[in-house]
Write a protein that binds this DNA or RNA. Structure first.
Lengths: 250, 250
DNA sequence: CAGTGGTCTAGACCACCTC
DNA sequence: AGGTGGTCTAGACCACTGA
């Protein structure tokens, strides 16, 4: 890191970026490059301060932001760790589903299909691919107890998930994002969801055991990995008779 | 503020709270007491540091947290301000609605009814009132251009909104929360929403110009003011043919 | 006990806004 | 020029963890 005081363009402000943000970018690069794996501890603040030749407080501020973004997890007395989807506490970060009454029964993911195809115009646009690029289409059911509550259609770029098959999914007892992270090195860090109410039809109605034409909650999701790169598009059909989508506005 | 180093119970940790959090609580108290009004600047960091007899860095950390919670707004070179719902940028913080295509047309709130009643069991539970306590029931339509997109039924504790009538609503050109804040001194700071898909019926179907039985997005909201006190319960019926509910999972 | 993150301080300087 | 928040540093001490 250049000092004093910190590197910037000649003009007073256009490309100015504070030191701690430059440090943050460096740490981000290391995460992206896999220098530390999900679940691993990263070097201590003082080590990083030496490595980057800045004060500990500056490293601290960089890590603070990354912890706020759920990229890192601080644990006092132990260290700072790379966040991982294998942590059960992070499970409902991407599944805003809660039962109307009672506590949460453990959920079970039932894979139905998983095949390869070429991207149509819509999927290509959502995933930032060329139309015709190889993709994976996967369907699955989410059950709580013996009730099917969510039917998902999931679209993935074929290139990133080379050997993903129905068998792989059936064999895995992990959450989907945990599998993506541990097996394919693709870490989901952010997602955008768009919700609508639609009328149930066809397969979705059947699998969720609701009448044709009855209302379903449609949740369309684009999930992003590092660098805001979209790597999953998903249409989820939620049967909201006994469950609801929970959201907190802060 | 007691020092050194900071006040705490005799035991090593049970009630321990860092200094900056105690400062935060003090600032919160002042906000709650109305010492500074929404939109006003609060004293500078250095002034507060002197007042509370702590370093500026400690005040800074307290304010940081409150800014992250949207209670305060920092503006470099100008000061720190009490957040206000009259700020147009904060309008969509509590309305996660976006058009499927195109830019956002300005919205218009059309009040339909506003009357007083006694709380039933459900409203009483949601608002933390005694059953039978006075409440206000209000209905309104939200239009984008000439399309009615949301029909809201809103329940408020009667005690906090003494003179609220249909006339008051019709006269106001502010957003609802802006009105609550400026006229009744009730500031909404947080809300929880529960979403379901339901079949349209009765008034809602009619007002939103959709067929009976067609799917609508039902958004139930409880909004809270300082101290996590619930002060609004709301059922919103969203017609999601050309609009959707947008949510970001971070 | 040593090592980690967490808190607090004091002081310097920068960036931005207003007068 | 003078005030505000924003960044950066250096150092001290606290709280928590695990050997």
């Amino acid at each position: 890191m250049n000092r004093p005081p910190h590197s910037r363009a000649t003009a007073p402000s256009p490309t100015f970026s504070p030191l701690y943000r430059q440090i943050k970018d460096l740490i981000l690069k290391s995460l992206e490059a896999g220098e530390w794996q999900p679940g691993d501890a990263i070097p201590s603040e003082s080590e990083l301060a030496v490595r980057f030749n800045v004060s500990q407080g500056t490293v601290r501020k960089a890590i603070d932001e990354m912890a706020a973004e759920n990229l890192l997890v601080r644990r006092q007395g132990k260290g700072t760790f790379v966040a991982t989807h294998s942590d059960p506490r992070s499970f409902f970060r991407f599944l805003r589903l809660a039962p109307d009454e009672g506590d949460l029964v453990p959920s079970q993911s039932v894979p139905l299909e998983c095949g390869r195809a070429k991207a149509g115009a819509d999927v290509a646009r959502m995933l930032g691919l060329e139309p015709g690029a190889p993709i994976i289409i996967m369907r699955r059911l989410l059950k709580f107890g013996d009730k099917a509550v969510v039917f998902d259609e999931i679209y993935l770029p074929g290139e990133l998930f080379q050997d993903l098959t129905l068998d792989v999914l059936k064999q895995s007892d992990k959450s989907l994002y945990d599998l993506f992270e541990s097996r394919y090195g693709v870490r989901m860090i952010r997602a955008e969801e768009r919700l609508r109410a639609i009328a149930a039809e066809g397969v979705a109605a059947e699998l969720l055991s609701v009448e044709e034409g009855s209302p379903l909650l449609l949740v369309e999701r684009v999930a992003f990995t590092y660098g805001n790169k979209p790597v999953e598009w998903r249409r989820g059909f939620y049967a909201t008779r006994d469950f609801h989508y929970f959201n907190e506005l802060a």
